[in-house]
Design a protein around this nucleic acid. Sequence first.
RNA 1: UUCCCGGUGGUGUAAUGGUAGCACAACAGAUUCUGGAUCUGUUUGUGGGGGUUCAAGUCCUCCCCGGGAAGCCA
Length: 571
Amino acid sequence: MSDTRPEKDTELDGLDFIRRIVVEHKRSGRFAGKVCTRFPPEPNGYLHIGHAKAISVDFGIASEFEGICNLRFDDTNPSRENTEYVDAIKYDIRWLGYDWADREHYASDYFEKLYGYAVQLIRAGKAYVDSLNADEIREHRGTPTEAGRNSPYRDRTIEENLDLFSRMRAGEFDDGAHVLRAKIDMAHPNINMRDPTMYRIRRHHHHRTGDTWCIYPTYDWAHGQSDSIEAVTHSICTLEFENHRPLYDWFLDELGIHHPQQIEFARLNLTYTVMSKRKLLELVTGQYVESWDDPRMPTICGLRRRGYTPSSIRKFLTRIGVSKTESTIDLSLLEYCIREELNKTAPRVMVVLDPVKVVITNYPEDGTEYFEAVNNPEDASAGTRSVAFSREVYIERSDFMMDPPKKYFRLSPGTEVRLKHACYITCTDVITDDAGSITELHCTYDPESRGGGTPDNRKVRGTLHWVSAAHAVSAEVRVYDHLFSTVNPAQVNEEAGENWLENLNPDSLVRHEHAVCEASLNEASVDNRYQFLRHGYFIADAKDSTPGKPVFNRIVSLKDTWAKVQKKEGV
RNA sequence: UUCCCGGUGGUGUAAUGGUAGCACAACAGAUUCUGGAUCUGUUUGUGGGGGUUCAAGUCCUCCCCGGGAAGCCA
């Protein structure tokens, strides 16, 4: 018995540090075993995939522990916030697959209560009205290495503070004339504790409270109390609020009200993109992208328009986990998640992005026949369709080479390839124009090679996708790539005059305006995602696609080992 | 210089003092009517020095490196 080791605590096995804390709280009976989280966006911009990580953590933990997750808009700064953003944020969260039921809250719902709490602190001698201006306050605050100095107004009497504060609310003073500050410690090593501002006078129309207030609580004052009012148990937020936690704890303890546990995690960074609201805004206003929902943007609306599914994003988010380590996730993991899903669900179709005409010289002039094509080799239940074939077909210009390198399996003079689902063709002639560029390829087909095989079972290495010229529907296909060409575009040496915008990838969008596709794609809708054979996964563009003229966005390419080989040999 | 936080393969993330595992990426092979998919295999890791212990990624200690903090932004 002496060598018995403590049994493994399997309930904690593999859990991230936040879930562990929650399990331990449930066990110890803290918060009476309840779990309540919240997602607290500021309605001043569009949600991006970094917010989606927070949403996944907040809503995910609540549901895993039989708790609830509120949506609360932290709308304490009326000069930056509006209802357009409120609506967009709600839409995006629902689209991602999360539900806050009727628990849609606003920090502005609590303005009156917050005011009362402030009065309580003044009465307790823990807050005072300061009449220094913003510059003076900054100057008094000191630096990380030097203590600050007390404001000359710090010792106003409680009565005077009460009077001044009510007159601030009543609108007797100009914007900026006074602020309410917590009275903590101007020498505190944590600068957030050096008498932080709680209220500022700011005459600005608020998207919900209109003009009823001319003083607004700061985030630092409003946030923790809002969580407390909502009976939140676990206030999960990002690392930059770690230094603020002692302040939030101080407020809650001085007030003597319900005290949630704040837990901070590292925000999401992705390679080849930027994630700060400011930079995303700059991309939009500088017209480096089309809009907030440009398919290259890491915004939720951008990912949606690009064709990412909510489930693939959720899968990605659970795979990256959550920790306190600052990290940058490989974009390839996100791409893997959508490929993995679409490989199983997306019907395959043939689309030629950059067509060149093939004339099958031994095929009847006016002949048409239909070949049966499987819709999805990964899913037998997806069935088959018939694809029209005729004497003239289009193939991809890059699927022919006059003078091919080794290991090129596609068409070249004299070689035989398979047209997917159809027949084998051999190139006999190459027609060029005066400038020497190829206008037509003449081929012969093997009439024995029906549906992709021959009686003699001979092997062909190359299989090409194609579209019958007589039956083709023309389309625009937008091929998207990384928005930036450097792994960490935000990392620039500004002193050397570098600008992160210089890292924009000039080839992040390539338009194929004269693509041709199977007739079945004529009425493609944004609800359908397709695999364009040998290209990747595509979706009709929600804004620009029309029934007569479909426009497709590339969601993600297929893995392309040939491209890799070429690249390697090009180097 | 002060305070807070972090450091496990290329990138993430597990390992509760007891075999450093998983995923992505990369590479190699098999297979294939998509150079897709699938399958198999391979490479690469505990920031450093001391200490405690039968045993340390894990505990102690010193150091190094990285991030955050001086809004009336959130």
